[in-house]
């Protein structure tokens, strides 16, 4: 098989990216769970664990640059490495959202939630499901799947609008809870952004497979 060394190292890089994706998924899921259960210890640990995500991201970036410098990839291989750099950054940002949700949890401290969390975990589930499939499509270079995933972003946006409107209504009726409700809007916003980042990953997948750079979320205007 030609270019064995390069192929092997590229596979390793993809493997590393999947590990990073897995860590990020767990972090987001854990952060939302901890917020729902008001588990401050877990929140603290996930908050600190963001460092691991950052280091992993740097490691992947370095390996990617070394591979470009030493193996002179061309065409699809080059697009793959450029896309890995991009996806790598997106994953790290998603990790930051998990960190942000943990921070909200910690800032809430011992105070109770303004309402039980229902829609926010749903948003997380939807977003993470998209992320998981988007990463799978990216590694497989499956542009068709990648084109369909961003459509699901609408559901996340819908949920976000609902959370936003609900909390706004509560703030009007009871101004005392404004700071705490605001925190929850931030959390929801983070999850809404997560879905947008997934769209970016899908765009990179299409780029990787076809060489075209396209916008996949142009169909409908976004809220906010």
């Amino acid at each position: 098989m030609p270019r064995e060394t390069f192929e092997r190292e590229l596979q390793e890089l993809k493997y590393e990216l999947l590990i990073l994706g897995s860590i990020v998924e767990q972090a987001v899921r854990g952060a939302v769970e901890a917020l729902k259960l008001r588990d401050l210890d877990s929140a603290r640990r996930i908050y600190a664990g963001d460092q691991i995500i950052n280091e992993k991201r740097y490691e992947i970036e370095q390996n990617c640059l070394i591979l470009i410098a030493t193996q002179q990839p061309m065409a699809r291989d080059l697009r793959m490495l450029a896309a890995i750099l991009e996806v790598n950054t997106e994953l790290e940002r998603i990790g930051d959202y998990a960190k942000g949700i943990c921070k909200i949890n910690l800032m809430l401290g011992s105070e109770p939630l303004v309402k039980p969390l229902i829609d926010i975990p749903k948003m997380a589930d939807l977003g993470l499901d998209m992320l998981h499939r988007a990463l799978g499509a990216f590694i497989a270079g499956d542009a068709d799947t990648a084109r369909t995933i961003p459509n699901e972003d609408d559901q996340v946006d819908e949920l976000y609008n609902r959370v936003y409107n609900d909390l706004l209504k509560m703030m009007f009726t009871n101004p005392e809870i404004i700071p705490r409700a605001n925190f929850l809007i931030w959390a929801a916003h983070n999850l809404e952004r997560l879905a947008d980042r997934v769209t970016n990953i899908c765009e990179r997948t299409v780029f990787l497979a076809t060489g075209e750079i396209i916008e996949l979320d142009m169909a409908e205007g976004k809220v906010i």
Binding site: S22, G30, E33, A34, G49, H132
Partner: peptide, 15 residues
């Protein structure tokens, strides 16, 4: 990733 148990894949107990 299918089981939602928490804590997860990586050990966050490194505060």
């Amino acid at each position: 990733n299918s089981h939602h148990n928490f804590p997860s894949l990586i050990d966050y107990s490194v505060t």
